[in-house]
């Protein structure tokens, strides 16, 4: 096997093992969107009226509306979780092991990204399965056509996590990321409410939501769940993925010394 594939397999396996070892993480990753779906959405169903907007062809319940957003939420939290584990790896030193491998650094970081994305996608499917058990179902084919959308959106949010891990100097600073990245990204998006609803209350907020790459990731997933393709969402998501990845690789450039700025 080529050294590239060997390392990809080993790095993904390690990500998977780490995930299995942290059972609480898996439970939390599933419970969080389910709480939103079964409690929050149930409460909001009456308060929010949804008109028929693409990709929907009929009136839908609020629960149905937020499923793609919650898929995005799983990918977002996982991206941040892998960012956290990268910072942890750096503090514990195991990052050094990875970065002193003779394989190119961009490849090693890409392996991390691919491994983490694969695990996020498995969780999304677990979530979709449980949602289906609660009778919140998508068209059958949608479960297949959503896969490429999940890969693209997962890579985008994983790349964002990678970028943040190169910027965060210490583990203790991670709480800030929660407040300043996850929450604004999630709430200022089309995950919980359609953008036209947002425009009714504030044009500025609508514009912020419209440029948020997370919105486009969620819309990509939403259309794909109904077997439809949303080219502008794909383009936005791909551009954001490219920008985040390039910035992350720059952040990990050895000439910048990001690995151990505090050095001794």
């Amino acid at each position: 096997m080529s050294p590239y594939l060997t390392s990809l397999r080993a790095i993904s396996q390690r990500e998977a093992l780490r995930f299995v070892h942290q059972r609480e993480r898996f439970v939390a990753a599933l419970v969080r969107p389910l709480v939103w779906l079964l409690v929050f959405a149930a409460g909001f169903r009456a308060a929010l009226g949804l008109s028929i907007i693409p990709p929907y062809q009929t009136y839908i319940t609020y629960e149905t509306y937020i499923v793609p957003g919650l898929c995005g939420m799983i990918l977002l939290f996982n991206g941040m979780q892998s960012s956290l584990s990268l910072v942890y790896d750096r503090e514990m030193g195991s990052m050094k092991l990875l970065l002193t491998s003779p394989l190119p650094r961009w490849w090693l970081l890409l392996c991390k990204l691919l491994g983490a994305t694969a695990i996020s996608i498995l969780q999304v499917y677990a979530f979709l399965l449980i949602a289906a058990l609660f009778d919140i179902r998508m068209p059958s084919l949608g479960y297949v056509t959503v896969l490429p959308a999940l890969i693209v959106a997962g890579l985008m949010l994983g790349a964002l996590g990678l970028l943040l891990s190169s910027l965060i100097k210490q583990l203790e600073n991670f709480a800030g990321v929660m407040n300043f990245v996850i929450f604004p990204m999630f709430f200022l998006s089309s995950a919980l409410y359609p953008l036209w609803k947002m425009a009714e209350s504030s044009q500025l907020l609508h514009d912020v939501c419209a440029v948020n790459p997370f919105t486009h990731g969620v819309e990509l997933i939403r259309f794909a769940l109904y077997g439809q393709f949303n080219p502008s969402a794909l383009l936005w998501t791909l551009v954001a993925t490219a920008v985040f990845t390039a910035a992350a690789l720059w952040g990990y450039d050895p000439a910048r010394g990001a690995i151990q700025r505090r050095g001794s």
């Binding site: 096997m1 050294p3 060997t6 003779p102 394989l103």
Partner: peptide
């Protein structure tokens, strides 16, 4: 390289740790 900090994955066995490292150097099987 032997780093100052321990860089073993404590949840894995010695052999698993060494296999992971071997793979980072393109060695498998």
């Amino acid at each position: 390289i032997v780093f100052q900090q321990t860089t073993l994955d404590l949840d894995l066995t010695v052999r698993q740790n060494l296999r992971y490292f071997a793979a980072l150097h393109g060695l498998s099987g």
